[in-house]
Design a protein around this nucleic acid. Structure first.
Length: 858
RNA sequence: GCGGGUGUGGCGGAAUGGUAGACGCGAGGGUCUCAAACACCCUUUCCGCAAGGAGUGUCGGUUCGACUCCGACCACCCGCACCA
């Protein structure tokens, strides 16, 4: 249903723009690589390819009846070799251009299944299938050098005028530009090769408030110490169990390990600071080492208090010089503060000024240098999985890592793979991995990593402009069509997908696959809300929650849990499989099958209550998890086919557009489709009635109807322009009400009905087409030019002016629209309610906003 | 934890700083009908018989006037780099 909503919105825009005379490219493709296909293969057997193309066929069949104005001749799936082969060609070009490289990076490693896990496959630090404690493991992986574009991606955000401000802000924060000082502490008693520790700080002005130095558990120093000191090894090991996500690190309890190593303060040789290994320091950011200034950073303060370290104040508020105790003093950098341990700049200055002064001072003293850092990390694209685009390189013993010859592309995924054992089937494939080195011809081994699916979705828009080309793109076509004028996607893509696409477009420009003008691929962005639904979870593995235990469900079979099933941590059920009802005040959910197996009806509350009394039903109760984004993995998805089959495409389209604003989430409930269907039936009945009317004689009612019609044109047009489809529909309802009650002549009503059909055509194209034909419209409504509102018809002669007394609406007066302000004041003061409230006194103030409102202040 | 957002009747929601609740759903009442369905008409934020009063998550502020702007808080949602 999420897709139905998304595509219907896009279709409204496509049809509306086409009616305005634009040539519209409205394509369809399938982002088809990824884990779900492999999971299905593992769970149900079969091949990811068959599962994927099968699902595409089903979805295409679901979408076709919706009447979307899609150019199906351009359709493709990202798992088509014709698509991913071109992606491989671009990868090679980007490798040549220095935009791709290899380095070590950590992954989640499941020691039992001997496989790499995605973050979502790690639940509470354990592998989702094996239940084994997940380890962090370093692998050599492929990276896109997105960080080379950090500054460019940041600065270009300002030009994206038609993007939501919140998305630009999120990307800005994600790229995370910061200005700071990088310098080295000299060490005491450190292992060889570590006589200096480089740190990066955004607050060099707090250098005299330093109380410790901390390095990441992945810092070379930590790794060196780990080798010889079992205590360090123990601590570092524990840190590595936390997980790889930033969220996990940030939420974990802040812990440190005193290495015994000391460093000298750069300004004072006698001043020594302890060096800790701390679990909250990221190796990927800055230098992987920091100095802590507890007085002005809450995290540092918590750490200092925990380990009994001092927390000297560096600056205090202008009006409050009390020292820091439990709460760090962290004012905005723009606030002026009083420096009591300053060393550069004025005694009273803003944080930002102090930072610049500190950098200048440190540079003059030869202590480090000012640097601009970015939080944005390079894009790791390696996946140790089968169902993705193979990375087109080979490993040759003599030549090293060599890109494939373009003539050998596409490097196709082998079909003869099995998923009966964990791990990457490519890795253990007997023949596929064998190949010849493209450089020296000697036997070599094919790269078995595949690409992150974000790569697939980072350039498909460009491919749509020439989907069958022998090169990734064709210049003539990209010149004509690019950029994407309107991109519609969920807010969940605000950062990763949209940032990667922006990078990829630039990389394509750099490698000659897109014109310079297309480096920002999406001119306008609309973030539509998600379609949500509650989630039904069976939880046989939770021994503490007996309400949900007792029965295990595998496919259609319901049975007592066995040892085999106990390995399944969670199992979700489709809303279609589940019935919910009330027992007392509590809402419960069980599988429909359990109820019907007992011979009870799903529609009768009394039957459901009877079924509930049976232990095998109430014991197999499902947990209801509050609404969340519809997702296959949580199975909280609704099949649109049923709606279309019962009511037709127009009802489905109208329904997903009405009520909820497009940018907001909408909770899917099946109630309401019926009401939509009734409404559309009434519209058709109205059209029939009008079609049979005599032309009649013009009357004053004709003018009223024409006014209403032009108002409707103006309102609906504006609403569609603003993506306010729910408002456009509300305005269509209002016009429907006016028209159905109008006493205007048949001739006028026929004109109004034809315009009505045009206005509703983007939303309900099929009904609109029928009405258009019935009312004698020429050709297809889909090809009729969009109606224009006559401004003269929108002007009102008299207006109703609300009268407020002390800001509260108390009365209203009817006045000519162009009445002079003085006259409005006079009439307002003569109004009964005003006279009563004034009670003979003069008003303190009288505000008249012409055409808007009158406010009498008493 | 950090970054971003949202919060309005029974429900979905509407409102360039200017009549809070458009439009729809649901509910109630009525007309039509032997009856029902359909259709049509009326009512429907809360308190109050009414006059009137209160009201947009909570508390405070700016303003003649605040759902809208500012500050603090609460709740929920999205993202956090291997879900896509």
């Amino acid at each position: 249903m999420g897709h139905v909503r998304n595509y219907t919105m896009g279709d409204v825009v496509a049809r509306y723009k086409a009616a305005q005379g634009f040539s519209v490219l409205h394509p369809m493709g399938w982002d088809a690589f990824g884990m779900p296909a492999e999971n299905a293969a593992m769970e149900q057997g079969g091949h990811p390819k068959d599962w994927t193309y099968g699902n595409i066929a089903v979805m295409r069949d679901q979408m076709k009846p919706l009447g979307l104005s899609i150019d199906w001749s351009r359709e493709f799936a990202t798992c088509d070799p014709e698509y991913y082969g071109q992606q491989q060609a671009m990868f090679i070009d980007m490798l040549d251009a220095g935009l791709v490289y290899r380095k070590n990076a950590v992954v989640n490693w499941d020691p039992v299944d001997q496989t790499v896990l995605a973050n979502e496959q790690v639940i509470d630090g354990k592998g989702w299938r094996s239940g084994a404690e997940v380890e962090r493991r370093e692998l050599t992986q492929w990276f896109f050098r997105i960080s080379a574009y950090s500054e460019e991606l940041l600065e270009a955000l300002d030009g994206l005028k038609n993007w939501p401000e919140k998305v630009r802000l999120m990307q800005r924060n994600w790229i995370g530009q910061s200005r700071g000082l990088q310098f080295a502490f000299s060490t005491i008693d450190a292992p060889e090769g570590f006589d200096r520790i480089e740190v990066y700080t955004t607050r060099p002005d707090t250098l005299l408030g330093a109380s410790f130095v901390a390095v990441s558990p992945d810092h070379p120093l930590a790794k060196q110490l780990e080798r010889h000191d079992p205590e360090v090894a123990g601590f570092v090991d524990a840190c590595r169990k936390i997980g790889t996500t930033e969220e996990a690190l940030e939420k974990a309890e802040k812990r440190g390990f005193d290495t015994g190593i000391r460093v000298r303060h750069p300004f004072d040789n006698e001043w020594e600071l302890p060096v800790y290994i701390a679990n909250f320091i990221l190796m990927d950011y800055g230098t992987g080492a920091i100095f802590g200034c507890p007085a002005h950073d809450q995290r540092d303060l918590d750490f200092a208090r925990k380990y009994g370290l001092p927390h000297p104040d560096v600056f205090v508020a202008l009006d409050d010089a009390s020292p820091v105790t439990d709460t760090a003093f962290v004012p905005p950098k723009t606030e002026r503060v009083h420096y009591i341990r300053g060393f550069a700049g004025e005694e009273v200055q803003t944080g930002a000024e102090a930072v610049e002064a500190a950098i200048a001072f440190c540079e003059s003293q030869g202590v480090g240098h000012g640097v601009t850092q970015y939080r944005l990390r390079d894009w790791g694209l390696s996946r140790q999985r089968y169902w993705g685009c193979p990375i087109p390189v080979v490993h040759c013993e003599t030549c090293g890592v060599v890109p494939e010859a373009k003539a050998n592309l596409p490097i196709r995924l082998p079909d003869d793979v099995s998923f009966d054992q964990p791990g990457n089937p490519l890795d253990r494939h007997p023949t596929w991995t064998r190949c010849a080195c493209p450089k020296c011809g000697a036997p070599a081994r094919r790269e078995t990593d595949t690409m992150d699916t974000f790569v697939d979705s980072s350039w498909y828009y460009a491919r749509f402009t020439s989907p069958r080309a022998e090169t990734p793109t064709e210049r003539e076509e990209t010149d004509y069509w690019m950029n994407v004028d309107q991109y519609i996607g969920g807010i969940e893509h605000a950062i990763l997908h949209l940032l990667y696409s922006r990078f990829f477009a630039r990389a394509m420009v750099q490698t000659g696959h897109l014109p310079e003008s297309a480096k920002e691929p999406f001119d306008a962005l609309f973030t539509q809300g998600m379609v949500t639904h509650e989630i039904y979870r069976h939880n046989p593995a939770d021994p503490n929650d007996e309400r949900y235990v007792s029965y295990d469900v595998v496919g259609d079979i319901v049975r007592k849990p066995g040892t085999e099933a106990a390995r399944l941590v969670e199992k979700f059920h489709l809303p279609d499989e589940v019935v919910t009802f009330n027992i007392g005040d509590e809402r419960v959910a069980v599988l429909k099958k359990l109820v019907t197996d007992l011979g009870y009806s799903l529609d009768k509350q009394s039957d459901l209550e009877k079924a509930w009394r049976a232990a095998e039903v109430s014991n197999a109760r499902l947990r209801i998890i509050p609404s969340a984004k519809m997702s296959k993995s949580k199975k909280n998805v609704v099949d649109p086919v049923n709606i279309i089959a019962a009511y037709g495409a127009d009802t489905a389209r109208w329904f997903v557009l009405s009520d909820s604003p497009p940018e907001k989430d909408v909770e899917w409930t099946s109630a309401g489709a019926d009401a939509t269907y009734k409404h559309l039936s009434r519209v058709w009945a109205l059209s029939e009635r009008i079609a049979e009317m005599e032309e009649g004689a013009p009357s004053e009612a004709d003018t009223d109807l024409m006014r209403a019609m032009h108002t409707a044109i103006a309102d609906v047009t504006r609403s569609i322009e603003n993506f306010a489809f729910n408002k456009a529909i509300a305005e269509l309802y209002a016009f429907n009400n006016t028209l159905s009650r109008s006493m205007a002549s048949g001739a006028a009503q026929k004109i109004a009905m034809r315009v009505f059909a045009q206005l509703m055509a983007p939303m309900v194209p099929h009904l609109a087409e029928d009405i258009w034909a019935r009312q004698g419209g020429e050709g297809l409504v889909a090809q009729a030019p969009w109606p224009k509102a006559d401004p003269a018809m929108l002007v009102r002669d008299t207006i109703t002016l609300p009268i407020q007394i002390n800001g509260k609406r108390r009365s209203e007066i009817e006045v000519p629209a162009d009445l002079a302000k003085e006259e409005v004041e006079k009439r307002a003061l003569a109004d009964d309610a005003v006279v009563r409230a004034l009670d003979g006194r003069a008003p303190k103030k009288l505000i008249v906003v012409p055409g808007r409102i009158v406010n009498v202040v008493i």
